[in-house]
Design a binder for these strands. Structure first.
Lengths: 229, 229
DNA sequence: CTTTTGTATTCTGTATGCAGCATTTTTTGT
DNA sequence: ACAAAAAATGCTGCATACAGAATACAAAAG
């Protein structure tokens, strides 16, 4: 087995040069976050510093720092004298998060209609068209990714940094849930229709309509995942 | 001036063993947060690990972990190879945060009217009465603290953990700003009047009214601090 | 006098070592 | 054989040590 862990190698594996271009801290945080989101580390799992560190090829010190960072993000929980465990979200937790997310996206939609430039709106439209293409070709994974990107992009249009921060945070906490919820074809179609409506409202800069669609979209999202909890 | 803060007993001290009941991590995080909020560490200041550690009587390792935690909270910024600096918020940043906070408190108010128990509402009323007493006696510091407590309490009534988390985070980021903004007597009176309205609406479980007052209250708060930026 | 370059110092980033607490296993008493 | 106590194991929490990067300083060249 290759002793140099994947963490310390460049992602694209291109030629020689500095092994590390991004700070190890960020890399570690991202990697751990992905492991949690993708279920490599299930909720309730203890984050074993020694073992995990060896597995990733780093010593305990930077690993602990990354864990503390994630704890502040709310993905893991720190238990005194006992380390960190992956946080477990109840159905109510998820519903609560979606309630907040809904309100925030409604706000973002309204702000976006007010302050976004035409060019930026065209950019979102482009993402949307890509997403539709993925829908038609049945590329679920890419669809899912673009879906998230679109929502983030709309939040970005609002040009409110705090709103962006919190949105990302909530999206991250929910990602693991959504990762599971694979809705059936008819629900999928409904979601796509909602997206069509969204982009139309945005292009028309119709604040109220956009907010309403965004809210409904998330409400339906809750409906789609509630069974799988 | 007491230079040695009692974060931890020094090993060379001959006194009885250091009594550590709360985890050092939490203590450090809270202490650093306070230092930032109260202006001991001004925006733009570099967090000097060696010096700061010696000052607080802890080694660099737990200090760094606390800093990473605060970085995730958004109070400090991590610059690769250069450590951490206290984050500086522009006037627009503050306005953006207040915009989000406003929306969240409106949501919290509506939810609170729906799900809060009568007993809990009585509890908020008690805080309110205390605060009024502080207003009449001119105790600004305690007034300020109770003010925050009331807002947090209303959010608490909504029984939405995610909402609570985010609210605390935004309040924390804004605390330092508010710490500066000392409004004059007439504005203070206006704020108190708004609080009276709030508690009335809450006791009547009047969702829309409570949301409206909370929103107006924060909008005015922005007016009160905008000059001092 | 200004600019540049080489050197020294300081600070961050990471690894390692040690002590204390938790938990589990073994031992002992009934 | 079973329960309780005691020892042993493993892990976390903190401190220290070391290496590399960045900055500050100084000397030399233009």
């Amino acid at each position: 087995m290759d002793e140099t862990s994947a963490l310390q190698r460049r992602p694209d594996g291109t030629g020689p040069g500095p092994i590390r271009r991004t700070a190890l801290h960020d890399t570690l945080v991202n990697h751990l976050r992905d492991m949690i989101i993708e279920g490599d580390l299930e909720p309730g799992t203890r984050l074993h510093e020694g073992q995990l560190g060896e597995q990733l090829g780093v010593s305990r010190t930077p690993l602990r720092e990354a864990i503390k960072y994630l704890a502040s993000e709310g993905l893991v929980e720190l238990v005194p004298s006992r380390g960190a465990v992956v946080k477990r979200f109840s159905a109510k937790d998820v519903k609560d998060m979606l309630t907040v997310l809904r309100t925030l996206e409604e706000l973002a939609g309204k702000l976006a209609c007010e302050v976004a430039s035409d060019k930026d709106i065209v950019g979102v439209r482009a993402l949307h068209d890509q997403m539709i293409a993925c829908y038609k070709s049945g590329d679920r994974l890419q669809y899912y990714k673009l879906n998230q990107d679109i929502h983030s992009a709309i939040v970005g249009l609002s040009q409110n940094a705090a709103l962006g921060d919190i949105h990302i945070m909530l999206q991250t906490r929910l990602k693991r849930i959504r990762f599971i919820g694979h809705e059936g074809p008819e629900k999928w179609a409904a979601a796509v229709a909602e997206h069509e409506e969204m982009i139309t409202a945005l292009e028309a800069r119709d604040k109220e309509r956009l907010a309403e669609v965004l809210g409904r979209h998330l409400f339906n999202a809750w409906d789609r995942v509630r069974d799988s909890l």
